[in-house]
């Protein structure tokens, strides 16, 4: 007997940890890893609501699968961008990436 609120609290905690990672980390790869954590938190929420409110319809799982697809695409493109930036600037620290600024 696990109440729905427990899942929601865990998911909120995971989301906030990921948010902190995105805002506070200097390294771009670490920021991407934190983004993956937040997307996982969203998926926990979707699956928990599906299981507790509407387990007869597959729409909650379908949403979670689409989130997963977009997360995979985001990871691939993001890491490709980081590698490309690393080739040009020899750095992946987010503060040092200021080409668009000047």
């Amino acid at each position: 007997m696990i109440p729905l609120s427990w899942y929601l609290i865990v998911s909120a905690c995971l989301f906030c940890i990921g948010l902190y990672g995105v805002m506070a980390r200097r390294n771009a790869v670490a920021m991407l890893m934190a983004v993956e954590l937040t997307l996982n938190a969203v998926n926990i929420n979707l699956i928990a609501f599906w299981r507790y409110n509407n387990p007869g319809e597959p729409i909650g799982v379908a949403w979670a699968i689409f989130v997963l697809t977009v997360a995979a695409a985001e990871a691939a493109v993001g890491l490709a961008l980081i590698i490309s930036i690393y080739r040009q600037r020899d750095s992946v620290v987010a503060e040092e990436l200021d080409i668009l600024k000047y």
Partner: peptide, 10 residues
């Protein structure tokens, strides 16, 4: 609610 006795499971 947070209490399992009140909220119940899935």
């Amino acid at each position: 609610p947070l209490d399992p006795a009140v909220a119940g499971g899935a």
